[in-house]
Amino acid sequence: MDGLLRKKDLVESVGVAKSTIADWVTEYHVFIPSLKHGAVTYYKPEALDVLNAIRELREQNYSKVQIMELLAKRGFPVTVEEAVEDVERVLSGADSRDTLLTVMQTMGQAVVEIGKQTERQNRIETRIEEHSERMDGQDGRIAETADQVAILRHVVEEMQQQLIAAQVEVAAAKQEAAEAKEQASKRRGLFGWFR
């Protein structure tokens, strides 16, 4: 599957042991975007950002709960389906009370993040509307400019026609002047014989 990564790709890119990646993928799966295709799990490229952040936070000795909080604060999206599965697993008694608290904190953070994303989306929609209005104004100015250009073209065409007519008149006047000069020269020649 193009663009998707397998666990071995994650190990190579993040630079930690395969067992560590396996643990992180399990512990922080609500933050790690993945797709299942049959029995194989593929990871989206964004998973590398999450795993690198986890590695960095683990190197700073943060606990699992702190890392989950920091991942949420950094804006890594929580996959809602995975979070719901965690809650269902805890409610069925498969996990401890600490896990329930962690999951509930993660869900709370997910709700906060969804709220922030909604606010961001609203701001983006407002900006799009503003840009659309500006574009409409620019379209009007472009139409006005196009009309002015058409008028100027018409004026230029008329001036070119007037220039051509003037050139024809000048050429005709030069021709007449040359012919008049020639006739005057012939007359002088005739009158010069009679003197």
Score class of each variant (00 low, 15 high):
L71Q: 08
D98P: 00
G75E: 08
S63A: 00
G108I: 03
L91P: 03
S96A: 01
E69W: 00
R89N: 12
V50G: 05
W24R: 07
S63K: 10
V103I: 04
R55S: 14
S96R: 01
R97Y: 11
E56I: 00
F76L: 10
A53P: 06
Q66P: 04
K64Q: 05
Q60H: 11
R55H: 11
V84I: 15
D95A: 04
F76R: 02
H37A: 09
D49H: 13
F76G: 10
T41C: 04
N61D: 13
E85G: 06
E88P: 00
V65H: 06
V65G: 06
Y62A: 03
V87M: 14
L101M: 11
Q105C: 05
A47E: 11
T41Q: 08
T102D: 02
D98F: 05
H29Q: 14
K64H: 00
K73E: 12
T41Y: 01
I67E: 09
S34H: 10
Q105P: 02
A94I: 12
Q66D: 14
M104V: 13
S34W: 02
V25S: 05
G108Y: 09
G108K: 04
H37N: 15
Q66L: 03
R58T: 08
Q105K: 03
F31Q: 06
V65D: 14
L51W: 12
T99M: 01
L101C: 10
V78D: 03
R89G: 09
T102R: 05
M104K: 00
S34L: 04
V87R: 09
Q105N: 10
V40G: 01
M68F: 07
G93Q: 11
E56V: 01
T99I: 02
S92K: 12
E88K: 13
L57C: 05
E81L: 10
G38C: 03
A72D: 06
T99F: 01
E82Y: 13
E56W: 00
V87D: 10
V84Y: 08
A47P: 02
E59D: 14
T79R: 02
A53G: 08
R74S: 14
V78S: 02
S63V: 00
Y43C: 06
E81G: 14
T26M: 04
L35V: 15
V90E: 12
D98C: 01
A53K: 15
Y42F: 15
R55D: 13
A39Q: 10
I54G: 11
F76Y: 15
M68D: 06
R89D: 13
E82L: 02
I54R: 05
L71H: 11
E81I: 09
W24V: 07
V103E: 07
A53R: 15
D86I: 00
K36P: 01
S63Q: 09
Q66S: 11
L71M: 09
H29N: 12
E88W: 06
M104D: 07
A94W: 04
E88N: 09
D49T: 14
V50D: 12
R74L: 02
V78I: 15
N61H: 07
T106C: 03
S34G: 04
S34E: 15
V90F: 12
P33H: 15
A72F: 05
E85V: 10
D86V: 01
V80F: 12
V40Q: 08
V103N: 03
D49R: 09
E56H: 11
L51Y: 13
I32P: 06
T99D: 00
H29L: 02
